[in-house]
């Protein structure tokens, strides 16, 4: 059996202790511990469906070993959906119909949120680059771009929780 240990990690603002074998990916570990909003699409870092933030930076959780996040902060889409103040990205995606099958949506929101903290007023090129690791087969990206631009505007006007 592979070596297993308990790691402490903050998931969406809550301190957790997760047991994980040495060879387990963060994707598998998060899902095993109930974070089903983190999606498995390719397990090779090609599609971005499993994207999460580690200390604020968007990464593919399928390419990250669970042990690597010990002591760090992991944010999933659930973490952007604070009951009191959901992230403006969520409202914008709903308003513009930027969600179809929804399977890529958690990863895209995670990538977009990370970008918006660096680039509050993104151009189309900024958005395209930020999402270049996130495949979507349903939407053609048009409504996703519109929604992200709207969320950026709301955030610049002081909306949302930060």
């Amino acid at each position: 059996m592979s070596l297993e240990k308990a790691i402490t990690v903050e998931i969406n603002g809550v301190a957790r202790e997760l047991s994980a074998p040495a060879n387990e990916t963060l994707l598998d570990c998060l899902r095993r511990h109930g974070q089903f909003e983190v999606k498995s699409g390719c397990e090779k870092g090609d599609c971005g469906a499993c994207a999460v933030q580690i200390d604020g930076e968007a990464v593919d959780s399928c390419l990250t070993l669970a042990w690597m996040v010990e002591g760090k902060k992991v944010t999933t889409l659930e973490g952007l959906n604070d009951a009191d103040s959901p992230h403006p990205l969520i409202a914008a995606f709903l308003e513009h119909g930027a969600v179809q099958c929804g399977y890529c949506t958690p990863g895209i929101m995670i990538a977009a949120e990370a970008m918006l903290r660096d680039i509050p007023d993104p151009t189309d090129d900024d958005i395209a680059l930020a999402l270049s690791g996130n495949l979507c087969r349903c939407t053609g990206y048009t409504k996703i771009f519109t929604a992200i631009k709207q969320a950026a505007e709301v955030l610049r006007a002081g909306g949302g929780d930060d």
Partner: peptide, 11 residues
């Protein structure tokens, strides 16, 4: 807004 949208957009 589609009936399935919110569940998907919130994960």
């Amino acid at each position: 807004e589609r009936t399935d949208a919110e569940g998907k957009a919130t994960g």
